[in-house]
Design a protein around this nucleic acid. Sequence first.
DNA 1: GCCAACGTTGGC
DNA 2: GCCAACGTTGGC
Length: 138
Amino acid sequence: MPYWLMKSEPDAYSWDDLCREGVGTWDGVRNYQARNHMRNMKQGEQVLFYHSNIGMEVVGVMEILEEAFQDPTTDDQRWSAVRVKAINPFPKPVKLSEMKQHPLLQNIGLIKQSRLSVMPLTDEEFAVIMDLGGMKMS
DNA sequence: GCCAACGTTGGC
DNA sequence: GCCAACGTTGGC
């Protein structure tokens, strides 16, 4: 099963914002590569939530509730959004600096392509980050 | 605040 | 279709 990681600046939209809303719409993505990843997401898949700029850490796990649909923030049909819900916060958020030091995380988009905001993770990468964050895999 | 990386735009 | 100029992202 594919896993994902999505970034947001907490100033704009944070983990706490998502928890407050319960169900969140992940919209505003204006990058083709990121959009293509979003269109590949399937209901029930798990997504890590990363705080860029402020925090620079993975803070929790989300789940895809609704697969890609027209981004409600624009009429431009090129852009898609997905619906997500928070599952669990990390007991211990995982810092970017920590991930950069981990030998099994050297190929993740966060490190290799720092501007990409939506990216896939391998089973192994997902498991490593969950472990670093003190989360038990269910 | 700076700047590297990278995507987009527009002139040719 | 190339590429210079420019804008944006995001780490430092």
